Amino acid sequence: MFIGLMSGTSVDAVDGVLVDFPPAAPPRVLAYASREFDAVLREQMLALNRAGENELHRAALAANALADLYAGVVSDLLATAGVEATAVRAIGAHGQTVRHQPAAGYTLQLNAPARLAETTGIAVVADLRSRDVAAGGQGAPLACGLHQAVFGGADPVVVLNLGGMANITVLPGRGPGKVIGFDTGPANALLDLWCQRHTGAAYDAGGAFAAQGQVDAALLAHFVASTPWLAVPPPKSTGRDDFHAEWLDKRLAEFTARRGAEMAPADVQATLVAFTACTVADAIGAHAPGTTAIYVGGGGAANPVLMDALRQALQPLPVEPTDALGVPAQQVEALAFAWLAHAHVEGLAGNLPDVTGARGPRVLGALYPA
């Protein structure tokens, strides 16, 4: 058995799964648990996405706090499944991304894996992205191998993850072609940011804030036209280094100056939803023209307004949560990091070079023994 822990760029919660990997069979999730970030740790993590005073000290303390949060999720998983820590071979712990600069040769996920191993008594596989970056890759997305193993079938489909950022895995089915995957742009990161600024809520529960507004076609066009990254061919990845408060504020200021009037906050939220939907649809249209269905994982799958926007942008293709394929949407990313921990322990490559752009397959991560 293995545990996978995922805390994504939305910085909303840690999702964890306890997974069995039977020989010659799909992985089987035995337990799921989730714990939310408290407001203080969430703000500390978001602040560490920007340069600031005494960064190294603040980052170390935040990493320790994250490891303690991870340990709480591990405890919940073991209690739910009724198993002992000694029955788990390793934990795959993603850490919290605070910088992602593959073009500069690095990606940084805050974590304290030695502390997590010491607290739980379970070996930890961490730092799962940096080897791919060292091999010339993007270090992301890394869930594509899991998507291929679990969701691959006869028909060509796309698996869409809606976390802080959006990314797709294109599975060719039995037809010609290779598995490809890449980030398509922002998802929950900008939606959460704008919602918190104007409502005080950490995220737009049920898409209620966006539902109050109307999509502004001119603002949507400005978002697209002013973001040359969208036209960069894969392999590519992104994060809060590219899409952040300053990115949004600059474009809103440009648009307001042109129009001569500020937009209603709910209209901006609705337009940000449309921005995610149209960038996903454009990416699928360009790189998965033969796909038959889109299956959605990640927190964004629980936002009905975003899901409706995707269905409209991608019609007539069906757009459904990964639940339809037997894996609940909120568990997919954590399952991927259990899968990566399993691959590390077995000495298997965890990356797909056609996805990340790395020079070849690599065993990912570093092991911290129990």
Rank of each mutant, 00 (worst) to 15 (best):
F2R: 11
G4K: 07
G4M: 04
G8F: 06
P22M: 15
A25K: 15
E36L: 00
R42H: 01
Q44W: 09
L48M: 05
N49R: 06
R50G: 05
R50W: 01
R58P: 01
A60Y: 06
A60K: 09
L61N: 03
N64T: 02
A67E: 08
S75C: 07
A90E: 06
G95A: 10
T97W: 04
T97L: 05
H100T: 00
Q101S: 13
A103G: 12
Y106M: 07
L108A: 05
A114E: 06
A114R: 08
R115Q: 08
R115V: 05
A117W: 09
T120P: 00
G121H: 14
I122E: 08
I122H: 11
A123M: 14
V150H: 13
D155V: 13
P156V: 08
N161M: 12
L162E: 06
G164T: 04
A166S: 14
N167G: 14
P172L: 08
V179Y: 11
V179T: 15
C195P: 04
A202H: 08
A208D: 14
Q214Y: 00
A217H: 13
L220F: 07
A221Y: 04
V224I: 15
S237C: 05
T238G: 10
D242G: 01
H244C: 11
D249E: 13
R258E: 10
Q269V: 12
A274W: 15
V280G: 05
H287D: 08
V296I: 04
G298T: 02
G300L: 09
G300P: 03
A302I: 02
A302Q: 11
A309M: 11
R311E: 02
A324Y: 00
L325S: 10
V327P: 09
Q331C: 14
Q331G: 11
V345A: 03
L352P: 06
L352E: 07
V355H: 03
T356P: 13
G365Q: 12
P369G: 09
A370S: 14
